[in-house]
Design a protein around this nucleic acid. Structure first.
Lengths: 334, 334
DNA sequence: TAGTATGATGTAACCGCTTTCATATGGTTT
DNA sequence: AAACCATATGAAAGCGGTTACATCATACTA
């Protein structure tokens, strides 16, 4: 690989001048610039990014920390982030944290080790205090799907409460009155916000919440399945169920079918996230759209603007979910 | 951030000695090593990886090029790669190529720009010739899901022919004799190999292939749906269908249901890939397992061994698919 | 006891680029 | 014509490490 020295030698100028051409400085005469450019072409010269990084103390790398690489939500988020960053010539470095505190910590260390210019992270296990500290010491931070108080301008999140609200509202408007709810772990902010939305919808429609119809589960398919089994066991009538994510809805659907309950004729079902799997279920799952790809893009744009001074996309911190109406929810049978 | 100079100053040795400690060279006395280590601790010193890269001409980054970041197959592959590389302290840099030649080329350039020590790529659009050239000039290459002749030792792939073979064999053993086949684009190696396996199974069981029951589609859900519609339109009897991937099987299932065909009572259905979606379909999809995560791990291990000299995992180039038996396939009704 | 391995450490060049500061050149202004 | 300015370019000092080579004790050999 040719170096800047060879280019400068070929043209007969100093490396400083070549560097100026590379970096688009105006302080180079047109004639020289042309000669340098053509020499770069001739030698198939490309600046060594490592050397540039060392000299400028920038790496052009953005670290992305997610619980998992795969799965509908994180995959889509990564997709959005990668697309934006690459379009701007920046590199995406990723690591997984598996929602385990030690692993998340270690992943951050790992990414910082690489001198990332910024970090975009989706962490569940780390305490707010740690995030604050990180935000104040390290490189700029963008936090996904979580609102850390005092760092609101660094967070991009979904209005989960509103999502829970519209899910339940839709069912109420279809005439349902007894609506069960399968929640995620209430220790997690998104899960509890979604449930809050459910509560608000009920109360705004003058419907009182029967606590026995709320089950806290774990966001997994099996959990949803078990939660539904428990609901049926309790033998309290309900004509609709909201599940705080699509995976649990899939499990719930399985259990309902196993019990011979027809969807949506006897029981309506609404999920949350608009994961691809919802389209494969039978009947296809009504759900709440979670614009995670755009949220990823937005995070990337924030970084591009804030760290690299590219463009001026105005940044949106809170995204609104929306209804996705499919076959699994219908009018109340009563 | 502390530098190696500050460490050397604090201990009162030269930077060379500190560097030796960092790199685990034996040529340092125990006493000195201890002093250096504790000074590093005191200063919270971590070597600057950029500077190390510049000096050693290694980046500790492995570039990964996939068509898409999300989706069941690539997500799972990335997962395997990232896990292995990170365990070894290497960084994963990724880029997407969208199966478009210009984009794949550009992505490679992008990754090489970053001085990746190795490349793991899943490319569809690039010609063998280009890959050969890349393999001979650039850093070590690992090619996923494709066998490039002359570079077999750089490829990790699935025995697609065998997968097609066992899918159809299973149906034959269940008594099916008229088996339709929905294929992926036959220009792609994996799609045509899968169909070859189907052919072999039929002929080994003394069953002759009715070409009218083979439809070339596009690996997408809608394509599968349309292919099935076409099969039904042709009105040639069949009691089972093999789909060359799960997505098309999902589409096919939809169409069958829309036509009131019961699965598996009237028609058995088998997919390919063992994507998560298969578990969500109703009835749950029988399919062929594609051990993509392990293949990703294997690729990463190859890189670790070949490029970084870590460990000696013996490398497996061709993986065998296996049956996943679920509800969508049953005995022939005849 | 002089001669010689051997192991620990230091010196300094180098990796490829950026950037500050100094210098040269030619054109304006007065 | 002297004084001044703007502009293009070069020289050289970093950035933070690695490593070939030199040096210096120390211990061992004969």
């Amino acid at each position: 690989m040719a170096t800047i020295y060879e280019v400068s030698k070929l043209v007969g100028v100093s490396v400083a001048t070549v560097s100026r051409v590379i970096n688009g400085s105006t302080r180079v005469s047109d004639k020289t610039r042309q000669k340098v450019l053509s020499a770069m072409q001739t030698l198939d010269y490309r600046p060594n990014p490592i050397a540039q990084s060392l000299a400028t103390n920038r790496s052009d790398c953005v670290g992305v920390l997610v619980p998992e690489v795969h799965g509908p939500v994180f995959g889509a988020m990564l997709s959005g982030i990668e697309a934006e960053l690459r379009a701007a010539g920046k590199f995406t470095l990723f690591a997984t944290g598996h929602n385990v505190e030690t692993k998340e910590r270690e992943a951050i260390r790992f990414l910082l080790n690489r001198n990332c210019d910024a970090l975009i992270m989706h962490v569940e296990a780390l305490a707010d205090a740690f995030i604050h500290q990180q935000a104040h010491n390290g490189p700029p931070l963008m936090i996904m799907n979580r609102v850390v108080s005092g760092l609101e301008d660094r967070c991009i999140s979904l209005d989960n409460e509103y999502g829970g609200y519209i899910a339940t509202s839709m069912l109420l408007e279809m005439g349902h009155r007894r609506i069960a709810y399968i929640s995620g772990p209430l220790a997690w902010g998104d899960a509890s916000a979604r449930l809050d939305g459910h509560r608000r919808a009920l109360s705004e429609h003058g419907c009182k919440l029967d606590e026995r119809l709320v089950i806290e589960s774990n966001f997994h398919e099996v959990g949803g399945s078990e939660a539904m089994a428990e609901l049926l066991r309790r033998d309290i009538p309900f004509s609709a169920v909201v599940s705080a994510n699509d995976e649990m809805a899939a499990g719930a659907m399985d259990t309902l079918r196993a019990h011979g309950v027809s969807i949506p004729d006897e029981v309506s079902l609404v999920g949350f996230d608009n994961a691809p799997l919802g389209r494969y279920l039978y009947p296809k799952l009504s759900t709440i759209n979670y614009p995670i790809t755009e949220m990823g893009r937005m995070a990337a744009n924030w970084v591009l603007e804030r760290v690299y001074g590219n463009g001026g996309t105005s940044i949106q911190h809170v995204f609104k979910p929306s209804l996705v109406i499919r076959a699994s929810a219908g009018p109340s049978p009563n």
